[in-house]
Design a binder for these strands. Structure first.
Length: 364
DNA sequence: GTGGAGGTACGCGAGCGACT
DNA sequence: AGTCGCTCGCGTACCTCCAC
């Protein structure tokens, strides 16, 4: 994807979406994914996905050509099960889903399928660059500066934009940004949707390379993520996010990257990584949360089977019920209390004064 | 001005026959 | 057997028009 050879094409983005009421956000995309995958987080044939979705009178092109990832196996075209699909299937529609989805759109890597032109693999480069070059780098994520006119001026003035018209594309994109809460990307805190974006970006980057016959191993996850402009595309950058990134990459790798959705793979992986593990079949099939002890905002929803692997990677597990109304501050307080109680139980008492301790920490 | 419906032109690739 | 070139159909890209 070098800059000089890039060609920005609108594709069917100048077509109308019928997203419905503005307050519903990207609900129709959420519905299309659930219907297209028939509620199962497993790769599905593109043809099957489209037929299911069309039968329900839902959108088809826009989801498959802009939001999801296409790959082929044995000559057939598939839509792969990735983080966006996992979130759509396991949680009801929410603002968080919309933010993850709009990130996927801006990330603009949707793979290949039979009959697709080469530029369709990166279908929304105009959006990707608008976010990275204009919104992140020029506006510093002051999203109030985004408007249809600004988008139009941006694409029209770029020689890489190759289409006869720009108005419809600009109004469509502006509409999409306003309904999907892009304005929340200005936060410098780590939030649930951002954590999901990171997993999604890795899913897509790895699959994109796989299309060219390149396998990416865990040691390269950090560098491919950095080269993909994930930082700029996922919102305001911050130290908290940079620190979280390291832990999340480790978690992603530990859970087996995209294999995390296959219980069979996770089971084998767990047996290899952890000795004497006892596999307990749970009645509850809902995903769980993995929290990093250094920052309870680093909370990732993971398939239930991955719990052991997440623990192995240094995360703590929280139950599906807790996940819904998880409060990071409360978690931090309770965790400290628990650790102190454990220390007390083991008769471990401080042998220095508070003043001495403070002096020690200041010198570090 | 903007979202939505419908329409059409066009390009790509599958399929097939002709020729080497 | 391999490859070249042509046709055809489908999917896609983009347009116009309409309602509000």
């Amino acid at each position: 994807m070098s800059d000089t050879s890039e060609s920005w094409r609108p594709g069917s983005f100048t077509k109308n979406f019928s997203w419905g009421k503005k307050e519903n956000g990207l609900l129709k995309l959420h519905q299309a994914i659930r219907v297209g995958f028939d509620g199962v987080t497993e790769d599905v044939e593109r043809e099957t996905f489209r037929n299911r979705v069309k039968k329900e009178g839902l959108l088809d092109y826009i989801p498959v050509n802009f939001f999801l990832f296409n790959s082929s196996k044995g000559g057939a075209n598939f839509i792969i099960a990735d983080e966006l699909v996992f979130q759509a299937i396991n949680w009801n529609h929410s603002d968080s889903f919309d933010k993850l989805a709009i990130f996927a759109f801006n990330f603009s890597r949707v793979g290949k399928w039979r009959g697709a032109g080469p530029e369709q693999r990166y279908p929304a480069l105009w959006a990707r660059h608008y976010i990275k070059d204009r919104v992140a780098n020029q506006f510093g994520w002051d999203t109030k500066k985004i408007s249809a006119n600004d988008i139009e001026a941006f694409v029209k003035n770029d020689p890489r934009y190759k289409a006869k018209t720009a108005r419809k594309l600009s109004t469509n994109l502006y509409y999409l940004y306003s309904v999907s809460h892009l304005s929340d990307f200005s936060t410098n805190r780590v939030e649930r949707w951002w954590v999901d974006c990171l997993f999604l970006a890795l899913d897509r980057l790895i699959e994109d390379q796989k299309l060219d016959g390149i396998d990416i191993d865990g040691a390269r996850y950090a560098s491919i993520l950095a080269n993909s402009n994930f930082g700029d595309l996922s919102g305001q950058r911050s130290v908290e996010k940079d620190l979280a990134e390291k832990h999340l990459i480790a978690l992603y790798d530990a859970c087996g990257s995209r294999e995390r959705f296959s219980e069979e793979h996770v089971r084998e992986r767990t047996a290899v990584k952890i000795e004497d593990v006892e596999w307990v079949l749970a009645n509850d099939v809902r995903p769980q949360g993995a929290v990093h002890p250094t920052n309870p905002r680093v909370l990732k929803s993971i398939p239930r089977a991955c719990a052991m692997l997440a623990k192995y990677a240094g995360f703590e597990i929280i139950e599906a019920d807790e996940l819904e109304q998880f409060d990071p501050d409360k978690f931090a307080v309770e965790r400290t209390r628990r650790i102190l109680a454990e220390l007390r139980e083991q008769n471990i008492v401080p042998n220095m004064s508070a003043e001495e301790l403070l002096k020690l920490t200041r010198e570090k």
